[in-house]
Amino acid sequence: MQSPERQTNIQNHELELFLELIYRVFGYDFRNYNKAHVKRRILHRINNLELGSISELQHKVLHEAGYFDLILRDLSINVTEMYRDPGFYKSMREEVIPILRTYPYIKIWHAGCATGEEVYSFAILLQEEGLYERAQIYATDFNQIVLEIAKKAIYPVSKIKEYTRNYQESGGKKSFSDYYVARYDSVIFDQSLKKNIVFAEHNLVTDSVFAEVNLIICRNVLIYFNKELQNKVVRLFTESLIKGGFLGLGSKENLMFTDVFDQYQTIDLKEKIYKKLVITKK
């Protein structure tokens, strides 16, 4: 059979219908993700499977095993690295840790943790600052496959050179190699880093508050959402933070353009670290 012509666009109403069906049938809601990104990923999938249209893809996703998992993988945000933006971690060490230190017990939520690199980056930071033993860390993502990778704490050795550089720039206090063992082409991170981490499935779009926490870290997730969904998610964060709790976002995610901005004080404008006000303005 001749393979169909490469698809170059999807009609918006067809894409919307497809996302609506995904939501109704599977419960995953991508309807308020930024369209250009979603369209590009779905187009790629259609061409990769050598299908002729989004309706052919839709039929397979609804009726054949395995296809929905592909879509889930295409639309989940899986790219992360250890100590991405070292300045963020440096600022956390200098501005946030001293305040967290004043609590007898701290809860931290990594929302949209993907494969866990940033969770372990922060766990190392907590160990070095002597706070790990009194921390409970929740690491959540909607995608179970990436959570399984996160739980293993095994990463390709090819990335270590860059991670080591990032770690040093972030104000790391030891030798980065103290935290992992290299085996063949992988490194496995120290088991002691996992002790206080709970990995759990949680969907920022459809699930609600599950704990009251001192710090939320959610980096480079909101950039995939439209304004409406961004507001919904930062409201969820605001409900989940204790008064005086901290929120750390990605370098291109600005709380200033959301509805909750007046409930926060900016701790670091460049690194996007915010503190929920103790007395909230109404």
């Binding site: 930024n34 369209k35 250009a36 990104h37 945000i77 790219v79 950039i223 995939y224 370098s251 291109k252």
Partner: peptide, 21 residues
């Protein structure tokens, strides 16, 4: 485009960023 981000154009003529592969 900022370093380390992809830059995308939306059909409503706004810009968006991603950290995809």
């Amino acid at each position: 485009a900022p370093p380390n981000f992809h830059l995308l154009v939306e059909e409503d003529f706004t810009l968006n960023l991603t950290v995809d592969e």
